[in-house]
Design a binder for these strands. Structure first.
Lengths: 135, 135
DNA sequence: AATTAGTTTATAATAGTTCTAAAGTGAAAA
DNA sequence: TTTTCACTTTAGAACTATTATAAACTAATT
């Protein structure tokens, strides 16, 4: 994914490609593998890997904008911090609490033989599988 | 589950049965069905349903003590609040985001045909299935 | 009844996140 | 281009959920 694609990605989402958004988007999306992060970890990584400065509020604004645009998904992990994932396809997670690390599980790695049906009047939006790991 | 059982439950967990703990335990555990709550919702319910007063810190202390004793489990839900569950058996959840409501799914309602194996050197501690609902 | 270790309480402190409003900036219009 | 202006960034304040503190209280043992 090259810089021009980042600009397209932002513009097509109605996000003005500011210096900060472009840098954060490049950092997040110009990768081979999916990337899991918290705002805190992203803040530290940006400080280390880039020369720009980002207000913490800008990082929050930006990842919220990216999430709203469908470029990031949110993963539920025990603890207070919110985790984000650059993998926005339907998939699942391993969670290694030893080092607070998330690992993606492709959707086709999980097949159900039996699943309950949704309660009265409700429909199933999606099914998330979370596999906790130990040593 | 009668009062005498509550006292036994507390004592056998090394928890001195104080007035507050007994009341909260009765409120939580003298039920037919499992009960899901946040500290905030529990605080409001206790204020409404009992005549005693509980400091918020006491509610936190108490549910942490109950959780440490294995009488409550914690459920991960998107959002900042921590949800607790009086169902401590291995099971799963529906989540209805319309009204922030959790619904239990018995373990035997979910059967896997395929599950990934744990990464290098890790073992699977447990598998949690979370089914998001919509209308 | 006296002692004491565990508990409750109000309040302060903390962590993560969101809000605010002033200053800055992309991009459309002149 | 320059001007304009809506959108964005920023620092710091505010907020929310939770945890820590330390003094007052209490269950249970002596």
């Amino acid at each position: 994914m090259k810089k021009i694609d980042i600009l397209k990605k932002l513009r097509s989402s109605g996000l003005r490609p500011t210096k900060q958004r472009v840098e954060i988007a490049k950092f997040l999306f110009e990768r081979e593998k999916t990337f899991h992060f918290t705002v805190e970890s992203l803040d530290k990584l940006l400080a280390k890997k880039t020369t720009s400065k980002f207000a913490l509020a800008t990082i929050y604004n930006t990842i919220h904008a990216f999430k709203a645009a469908g470029h990031l998904s949110e993963v539920e992990v025990k603890g207070k911090k919110t985790y984000f994932d650059t993998n926005i396809s339907n998939h699942h997670h391993f969670y290694d609490s030893e080092n607070s690390e998330l690992i993606d599980i492709e959707a086709n790695e999980v097949v159900f033989q039996k699943l309950p049906k949704a309660p009265n009047g409700k429909k199933i939006k999606n099914v998330e599988v979370f596999i906790n790991l130990k040593n």
